[in-house]
């Protein structure tokens, strides 16, 4: 139950990762940002498998920022497997993606996403979005007990 209050960022685009780090930094969000580059790595991290074997699963992320378009296993599949597993069933997940195609929004919510945010092209707006996300999910929101 010792949450480290870190944020899991599932994002394959290194520039987007850098921009997200920058936006967090600019908004004084001090939580550690754990970055994984594809869906498989995300699942490995969440379930302590592969490169993350032996990781303390009690140390669940405060929030998962999940891109949908990912190599190997896509974001919706990651979400589906998370919701199918008791350990990550209640894990807050924000879908953070480029698209706002209606089918993506609908599928995400159907699979149990807690929020859906479209990444703005304009960096000013992007920074603002990161700020709002940090404020809401890391400060206001009460996480589920025990991960």
């Amino acid at each position: 139950m010792n949450r480290s209050r870190n944020v899991l960022l599932v994002e394959d685009n290194p520039y987007d990762v850098e921009l997200t780090l920058r936006a967090f930094e600019q908004n004084n969000i001090m939580n550690e940002l754990v970055v994984v580059r594809d869906g498989k790595e995300a699942l490995d991290y969440l379930f302590g498998a592969g490169a993350y074997a032996g990781r303390d699963l009690g140390d669940a992320p405060e929030v998962v920022l999940l891109d949908l378009k990912l190599p190997k296993i896509d974001g919706l599949e990651v979400l589906r497997r998370m919701r199918a597993d008791e350990r990550t069933r209640r894990q807050p997940v924000v879908v953070l993606t480029s698209s706002s195609e209606e089918k993506d929004v609908v599928s995400s919510y159907n699979l149990g996403a807690n929020s859906f945010v479209r990444k703005p092209v304009d960096f000013t707006q992007f920074t603002e979005a990161a700020k709002q996300l940090g404020l809401y999910w890391l400060v206001l929101n009460e996480p589920p007990p025990g991960g």
Partner: peptide, 22 residues
């Protein structure tokens, strides 16, 4: 097509804008 436009064209644009700003 519009799905890829929405996904793939916006990412590089975000990089251009974000990195210019940085």
């Amino acid at each position: 097509f519009s799905y890829s436009v929405s996904h793939d064209l916006r990412s590089p644009l975000r990089a251009i804008d974000g990195f210019s700003r940085m």
